[in-house]
Nucleic acid binder design. Sequence first.
DNA 1: GTCTATATATTGATAGAC
DNA 2: GTCTATCAATATATAGAC
Lengths: 195, 195
Amino acid sequence: MARTHGSRAEITGPLIRDEARRLFARNGYAAVSMRQIAAAVGVQAGALYAYTPDKQALLHDLLQSHMKELLAAWRDDPSADPLTRLERFVRFHIDFSLDHADAVFLSYMELRNLTPENFRNIAELRGRYEDALDQILQAGAEAGVMHMMDRKLTTLAMIAMLTGVINWYREGGRLDRDRIGDIYWGLARGAVGAN
Amino acid sequence: MARTHGSRAEITGPLIRDEARRLFARNGYAAVSMRQIAAAVGVQAGALYAYTPDKQALLHDLLQSHMKELLAAWRDDPSADPLTRLERFVRFHIDFSLDHADAVFLSYMELRNLTPENFRNIAELRGRYEDALDQILQAGAEAGVMHMMDRKLTTLAMIAMLTGVINWYREGGRLDRDRIGDIYWGLARGAVGAN
DNA sequence: GTCTATATATTGATAGAC
DNA sequence: GTCTATCAATATATAGAC
């Protein structure tokens, strides 16, 4: 419900991002109007433009801060043994994806709606995250505890497999998160020939 | 470029579907207008409505025929040994996905733009395809040649992993299709503990 | 079957008052 | 910072001529 007059700048900004993220993820960037976002926030459409120059910048901002948050949240320990590092990555990726399901969804669903320049920016950040897993697989292969035919494809395949949880996971479902982590870690460990 | 007058019913119908599939996949359902589709086909926008009642029916039709084609294309041999069946499934899924990349993309990208009834219809078809893999994993587990903690999650994880190829594959890239099949079969075989 | 023309609604974005 | 009002563009879909 849209208010009439009165300023709440300190909370409107984050609220716009929250509602835009939710609506974009649920209905798609192109299908969501600025008026819909404004209504969900509780302001009139014109007020949004005090926070973002346009709709495209809003999308790019959501994706960029998500990717930066993801990169900041992952803390590897290169001195640990590779299998331990991989297990931590698997569980981290699942937990982070489920905690930020809308943003994850957006990050691989709405790339096509970014301008070319914004796309390159997000793709670069994504590449850095893929490198984090690639380094673990490289260490595992060099230590002889992992065996794979192609490291790059293994990286992409594993991230695709793990990210898939957001497509079926429902709070309060058959399996809790720890159990899901166990199962995917079993799949991942087998995939890299570490049984 | 849009023609002016003259009927080509026998080719306009399929052409509408082809161009709609391509444009929806590239730009997103909501972002593509009926005028864009008409322009790509070479007719005026009004002419599209001789072939589809509305835009929603066009999307649903594309997804439904894709899923039915997928189900019809997969021919399992339940008498073969489970690992052979799984290898065939892995290579089939990759090849089919790459041969129909736009439709595959649509099928998991635009589900949210279907009406609830149309969504249920597509979800049911998707469930049948998942069952095809599930049966193989069940046979493998019972024969003792595959080992997994959770068959349902293994099914979903494997399909997510395999489908991911459409996100990075490019014709003429570093790896040809057979080689990609080899690599993913290696990953899949390991994931089900069949090394 | 396809065209032209149009009804009707909605969009992203801006201007100016408060 | 937010509102109201509005512009200009574009959307889906339909009607009627050919």
